[in-house]
Design a protein around this nucleic acid. Structure first.
Length: 208
DNA sequence: AGCACGATTAACT
DNA sequence: GTTAATCGTGCTC
């Protein structure tokens, strides 16, 4: 499947957040693909969105948000957890989609190791967890997901179909209407479990 | 220069 | 349900 292009991200952030459900987030680490299907996203849209980091205006931290679409905005939250976002909309307008959950599909052995052997059900069902699972850190901040040869990118996959919306998580500090607007998107029919390994010889890039 | 607080997680009771 | 872990950021003094 081809990779999503810059044109995909150069659209309204809410649209991108919806359509990212079902698509495949891939991080190539040491020549090995670590990947999963995106199952939950959130939209953060502009300086007027008082839940968005861009509410602080253009600063050193938010520079990526204001930049061109298709790049990663990765920041550390609570001093512990890396949050993986994809910048959306035109250069100069600050907006991004936070990827909040994925269903791991490739590189399972490495992903389990990155997650310290935790049960498969909770390998990547949170924004901090999926970053740990795919080994995404602040080093990825600003990377162009649409560049040729990028190690971090999103591949096209069948669309999610039915999508459920609800208010965004963890932004109780924000005033209305931002606190309650339905900018969290979930793919309820996402595969619950990680696919089993196919029978026969394993791919060359699958470990142990 | 100092401070309060997160777009969270895991391990508790 | 409660709480510790842990640090970059933006704001105040």
């Amino acid at each position: 499947m081809p990779r999503l292009t810059r044109a995909f991200f150069d659209r309204p952030t809410v649209t991108v957040a919806r359509e990212l459900l079902g698509q495949r987030l891939v991080h190539v680490v040491d020549g090995r693909r670590l990947a999963g299907l995106i199952s939950e996203t959130e939209a953060y849209v502009g300086e007027t969105d008082l839940a968005c980091h861009a509410r602080a205006g253009r600063t050193a931290r938010t520079e990526r948000l204001f930049g061109p679409p298709g790049r990663a905005y990765v920041y550390l939250n609570y001093g512990l957890h890396w949050m993986m976002n994809v910048v959306c909309e035109r250069d100069g307008f600050p907006a991004a989609v936070l990827i909040r959950a994925i269903v791991p599909t490739e590189g399972l052995a490495r992903i389990r190791a990155n997650r310290c052997g935790k049960p498969d059900k909770i390998l990547a069902d949170g924004p901090g967890k999926l970053s740990q699972a795919l080994a995404i850190t602040g080093a990825a901040n600003g990377l162009d997901l649409c560049a040729r040869g990028a190690a971090l990118f999103i591949e096209a996959a069948p669309p999610a179909g039915v999508v459920v919306t609800r208010p965004r998580i963890g932004i109780d500090f924000a005033p209305e209407p931002w606190r309650s607007i339905d900018w969290n998107f979930i793919w309820p029919a996402a595969p619950r479990r990680t696919a089993q390994q196919p029978p026969g010889p394993r791919p060359a890039n699958e470990e142990e």
